[in-house]
Design a protein around this nucleic acid. Sequence first.
DNA 1: ATGGTTGCATAGCAA
Length: 292
Amino acid sequence: MSRACVTRAKLTVLPNTMARRPKKLRLVTWNINSIRLRLARLADLAVALEPDVICLQETKVADEEFPLREVRATGYRHIAYRGEKAYNGVAILSKIPLAVIPSTPDWCGKGESRHLAVDLDIPGAPVRLHNFYVPAGGDVPDPEANPKFRHKLDFVAEATHWFANGAGSIPRQIIAGDLNIAPLPDDVWSHRQLLDVVSHTPVETEALGRWQATAGGWIDAMRHFVPPPEKLYTWWSYRNRDWRQSDRGRRLDHIWISPDMIGTLKSGEVLKDARDWPLASDHVPVCVELLV
DNA sequence: ATGGTTGCATAGCAA
C-alpha cells in the first residue's frame, strides 16, 4: 500500500518539476524530383544522414500510386503524403509517430499538393511540422505577364497571412521545404546577376521576408550554423556540364523553426555530395538536428 | 540573346 502511494506521488510530481531529457530530432528536407524514380536515392539518404523525419517535395505521384511498401522498407513506418499525377506532391516520412493536420488551406484555390502539416508525437509537447513546396514561378519575373509568377507571389502572401492570423500562434513549429526563393545575397552564386532571375528578385525575397517575420520571426536554421557571407546552396541546375566546376547554385530549400525553439538547435548540414549521386535530383538534402 | 537538362500526361510543358 505505502509503495503504491510513493509510486503515484512520483508520477504526478516528475513531469512538472524535473527536466525531461530532450529528444534528438534529425530532420531532412529534400526535393526528390519524382519519388518513384529515386527510391534507391531515398535509401541512400536514410543511410547517409539517418534522419528521424524526412520532408519530400515534388514526389510527382498520385496518392493511389504512392510507393508505400518501398518507402516503409527504408525504415519509416509513419508516412503521410499528398500528391497528384505528374506534378507537385509532398510527403513526410517519420520514425516518430505523427498525426496529419486535416484542415489546411487550399492554397490559391488550386487544389494542388504543395503543403502537408503534421504533429510529431514528441514527449512533453508535440512539434508541428509544415512541409511546403512553393511554386517555382516560371521564367519571367513579372506578375502581369506571367501567371506562374503571380501564383508564386500569391502563394507566399497567403502563407504569410495564414501564419500571421492564427496558425503562427502555436508553439514548437517547423517550416521545411522547397520555398523556391534564395533570400540572401550569399544564397546565390551571383547576387548582381540574379536580381532579375526568378527565385532571387527583390519582390520575392521581400515577400519571403514578410512570411519569415510572422509567428514572432522564424529562425533560418541552416543560416544559424552557416552565417553569411559564406555561400550556401541547395540546388544546382541540370543545365550545366559540370555543376561542381561552374558552381552556379542557389539556396532554395529551407528549414525554419519558431522562435521558442531557438534553444533546440544542435547542428545543420547540406548534403552536397548527393548532387553527385547516380541519377541525382537537382536539389540536395538539407538536414538539421534539434534537441526537442 | 540563346541554349543548356531532366521528368512525366511520351508531347509539350514545367522546372
